[in-house]
Design a protein around this nucleic acid. Structure first.
Length: 259
DNA sequence: ATGTCGGGGAAGCCCCGA
């Protein structure tokens, strides 16, 4: 079974590439982030033609997540139970589903904007709600993983130049402690292979030639429980998908499970 | 080869978010 996560930065803008990639990669389950469209505008029909069902949590121009699967789609949960609000709303940043033998969350963790910003505190609260939401599945026998754009680089090796990130979000001890909280809950970081260079970056800013200069970050993560990580045969970043016109600023992370 | 992109409201540019 091939399972993947990809921040597509607008499913509308990315649809031709998304459909082509689903076919060429043979992905069974894809966790999508930043759909940037209302659920009513979600391309259910085009995905169904390729054999995928979809569980969607999306409200409009910002955020939006989905799980698409051709391995079954059951027990959908939309949003983090008891999740925090930002400016009075629970932003659409999480959706869970069981896809055949595996249960997944697709998550788009709040960016945080700046250290100390209201959105940064929201980010930390959001992580705490996530930790509580996944505790039971993390401890269970069934393969389980939380896949998505975490907006946190787990270590200094996960950014192209740690000195550039001093004092910025994505690398602070509090954000990394939130990841440690997930590990304490029984989840482990499934680190993918890079297909080029040494570090498995998953995101390169559109600005200032980030991708050609490999000024990247590893912020799209797969955190799996022991039954999940035991089944991992391979994991890699499909950086080919970051190339060329019409690319997202994130590349898919692909995990092959022997299930 | 590549020095940003995407959405939306408004209006043919500007703002926001990343």
């Amino acid at each position: 079974m091939r399972i993947a996560t990809w921040n597509v930065n607008s499913i509308t803008a990315r649809l031709p590439r998304l459909l082509a990639w689903l076919e060429s990669s043979g992905t069974d389950v894809l966790c999508i982030q930043e759909t940037k469209c209302a659920a009513e505008q979600f391309p259910y029909d085009q995905l169904r033609e390729l054999g995928y069902e979809a569980a969607v949590n999306a409200t409009g121009r910002w955020n939006g997540v989905a799980v698409i699967s051709k391995a079954g789609l059951e027990d959908v949960v939309t949003g983090l139970p008891g999740g925090p609000e930002y400016e009075g709303v629970q932003e659409p940043r999480a959706v869970a589903a069981t896809c055949g033998p595996v249960r997944v969350w697709s998550v788009y963790v709040p960016n945080g904007r700046e250290v100390g910003h209201d959105h940064y505190h929201y980010k930390l609260q959001w992580f705490e709600a996530l930790r509580q939401a996944v505790a039971e599945d993390a401890a269970a026998e069934r393969p389980f993983a939380v896949l998505g754009d975490y907006n946190v680089a787990p270590t200094d090796d996960d950014v192209w130049d740690p000195t550039v990130f001093q004092g910025l979000t994505h690398v602070t001890p509090a954000e990394r402690a939130a990841l440690a909280g997930l590990r304490d809950a029984g989840l482990a970081d499934v680190v993918p292979r890079p297909l080029k260079y040494d570090q498995p970056f998953t995101y390169w800013d559109y600005r200032e030639l980030g991708f050609p200069k490999n000024k990247g970050m590893r912020i799209d993560l797969v955190y799996g429980n022991a039954p999940f990580t035991k089944a991992v045969g391979d994991a890699y970043v499909d950086r080919e998908e970051r190339k060329g016109k019409g690319a997202s600023d994130h590349a898919p992370v692909v995990v092959d499970l022997e299930l």
